[in-house]
């Protein structure tokens, strides 16, 4: 009976359930991210790789991509938890996404030897990037 009641209450709160499925609310490293470090990761085309596909408010990097949405306003469109999920493994939202999974190695094939069993970014680097993206509110 209590279970049924709980289920009814949950069904009244679809927003919170969806938010759970749509985000990773807690820091992966247990530490807060640093926006300045995050900006440097985003700008670096061999570390974050972000600007290969996205454009963003980083004017000193002239060669930016347009395969993916601009990072401008990312902090307005998404919560830090939603940004974190999209970085960790965007396949969970869209299996056909072109966005690489930055913190998952499952389901990858023929990974180059020097990247085998390694994630693209570390837990703390993900937090730093989330912290930077959350500042993009224009």
């Amino acid at each position: 009976m209590r279970g049924v009641l709980a289920a009814c209450l949950l069904s009244l709160l679809p927003g919170s359930v969806a938010a759970q499925q749509d985000s990773i609310p807690h820091s992966l490293s247990g530490q807060p991210g640093d926006p300045a470090r995050g900006r440097a990761i985003v700008a670096n085309r061999t570390v974050g790789l972000c600007l290969l596909c996205h454009s963003g408010p980083i004017p000193e990097e002239r060669f930016q991509g347009n395969l993916a949405p601009s990072l401008e306003g990312a902090g307005l469109r998404s919560t830090p938890g939603q940004l974190r999920l999209r970085l960790v493994d965007a396949r969970r939202l869209n299996p056909d996404t072109i966005m690489p999974p930055y913190y998952r190695t499952e389901g990858l094939t023929r990974v180059a030897r020097n990247f085998q069993d390694k994630t693209i970014l570390s837990a703390q680097q993900i937090e730093d990037v989330v912290a930077y993206l959350a500042t993009l509110k224009d």
Binding site: R91, L108, R110, V111, A112
Partner: peptide
């Protein structure tokens, strides 16, 4: 059409 590599492309 097969995805491969760390970037899964």
């Amino acid at each position: 059409k097969r995805r491969q590599g760390q970037l899964n492309l």
